[in-house]
Every structure is written in C-alpha cells, then in structure tokens.
Amino acid sequence: MHTRALASTGRSVSSIGLGTWQLGADWGDVDEADAFAILDASVDAGVTLFDTADVYGDGRSESLIGRFLADRPGHGITVATKMGRRLEQVPENYTPENFRAWTDRSRRNLGVDTLDLVQLHCPPSAVIDDDATYDALDALVDDGAIAAYGVSVETTTQALSALRRPRLTNLQIIVNPFRLKPLDEVLPRAAAAGVAVFARVPLASGLLSGKYSADTRFAANDHRTYNRHGEAFDKGETFSGVDFETGLQAVSELSAALPAGVPLPAATLAWIAALPGVTSVIPGARTPTQARANAAAGDLEVDLTAFDAAVRDVYDRLLRAEIHPQW
C-alpha cells in the first residue's frame, strides 16, 4: 500500500483508507463481529486511515474503532472523525462551546486524549466562510483536544472557501467518475496549498461496483432507499446525486473500457488515487472481502489511459449537464 503525507502533520496515511459510515448506520445492519472483522481486514491489508463521524450510529462507529484500536498499541492508524451534525444545521449552532462538547464526546468514544484529525461535517456555507469558525478550531488545537482539523464539504465553492485557511490540514469532498468538478480547481489549489484531500463516496454508494441492476433493492434503513432525492440529507451523498438508471448506463460504458481482468471498483479506486492532489480515497466496506478488495486497489499497477478517457467522455455526455452545476 502506498502512503502519502497528511499535510504538515508529520503523519503519513495510506492511499486507500476506510470510510466507516456503514459501521454506524444507514447502510443496513452491520453487527459488531462483522465491524471488527472489516477493521481487522483493512489493517492487515495496509490501511492506515479510518474516517468516521460522531453521528454515525450516534457514536457507534467511533466507539467500535476506539475499542478495536485499544487492543493494538502502536497501531499507526490515523483516525479522522467529523463533528457538527448533532444539532440543527444552522450557523448559530457552530459555537466554541458546542465544538468543545462534540470533541470531548468523540475523545471519550475513541478512548483518546487528543483526536488525530477533526473535520467539520458538511456544515452550512456560512460556517465555512466565517473567521470565527477557525478561531474556535485553532483554540482546540492549542488546547491539545485535537491535533489537526479539516472540513468535509458538499460543493466546490465550499472547498475553495475552506482552502483559504492557513491551518487547514485536509479537505474531504466527493470525487469519483460521476463527480469530476473537483478536478477543475479544488484539487490543484489543495495541492498548491499543501492541504490533504480525502476523496469520499468514491464508488458512488456502490453504484460503481458494477454489481447493481435495475432490479436491485436495498434495505428500508439504507440511505440508498430513503435518500435518493435528498429526503434526509444532501442527495449528492447517495449515488453521488446521479439518477440510478443513468448511473447504470454509465457503469456499463465504463466497464467496457477496462483492461481485461480488472474489476470496475478496483479501477475506479486506483484512478481516483492517481489524481494529482488526492491524498487518500476512503471507500466503505460491509464485509472483510470488500475491505481487502478496496485496499488492493492501492497496489493496482495497470494502464488506465483508456479508462480515463472513458470516464471523461461518459461524464460529458451523460452527467455533466445535471451534476456539474449542483456541486
């Protein structure tokens, strides 16, 4: 597994990390034994970055990770958590007092004195634009509650605003073959600023696994059932905001452009990881087999020139008009 510097923190993280939303909620049920098996398989495969949040299962994901790492002293894993969605999404709730309460809760869940990295969890744009936000985050760093901070965003406009902040460590944004807008400005500016980029939703909620069809059905408590049109949160978090049927057509065309024997998810993860400016790609996994397959993409050595051309062509023909203006 290749590793890359996490900005100026002195840490390195694997080019393929592990997103752990699924260990908390919203992806159907993942029991405790399966959760630990997924974490174990990821670490064995060279993953050194876990991405979580305080709202994933109301802290379940954080707590499971904390318990898992407690049995592995010297583990070398960087845990990036997120905060800010435990209250109504209005700027008035993003106060120093709430920042302190949220980070204290995450410290307890993870069983640590200092959080490795805390990201604002897709807050309102006004919060990202506000100087006071970063004053409060700086105070948490200075107090030793957190070692570093970043921002997870929905839009490229939000990303470009966050990138103006000198102590920003990382930016988390959706990047995949269905979301190419970050390639225009965000990735180059992040690289120039020395800010790490975590590419989330890399497989478009599994759509880019190539395993779904028009007949695929998801559990009632899976966001791929209940949030297709943004009923619960930003619709871009579900299938990257792409219409399911259109996504299936795009997947078919992308699969046809692959080198023989290369699975679509592996090619997709490797393609994202190779983009200039991307530090780590953070797919989720609901089984140890998925976790190992995702991690293996970090070592994939294959010519993806034709795939890259297909990604850009498919995006321009099928997706750009709908997706580019929204995020």
Rank of each mutant, 00 (worst) to 15 (best):
I16K: 09
G17N: 10
L18A: 05
G19I: 10
W27S: 03
W27A: 04
V30G: 02
E32Y: 04
S42I: 03
S42F: 02
D44R: 15
V47H: 07
T48Q: 05
L49E: 08
G59L: 07
G59F: 05
A70G: 12
G76Y: 05
E88W: 00
Q89G: 00
V90T: 15
T95H: 07
F99M: 12
R100Y: 07
A101W: 04
D104R: 13
R107M: 11
N109M: 03
N109T: 01
L120N: 07
C122F: 05
P123M: 07
Y134I: 08
L140C: 01
D143E: 15
T155F: 07
S161L: 12
P166K: 08
L171V: 11
Q172M: 15
V175C: 04
V186G: 03
A192M: 04
V201S: 01
P202I: 00
S205G: 05
G206A: 04
Y212Q: 13
Y212L: 15
Y212K: 02
D215P: 00
R217T: 15
A219H: 11
N221M: 01
R224L: 08
N227E: 11
F239A: 07
S240F: 02
E245G: 12
G247V: 06
V262Y: 03
A267M: 04
L275S: 06
P288F: 09
A310C: 07
V311L: 04
A321K: 14
I323R: 05
W327I: 12
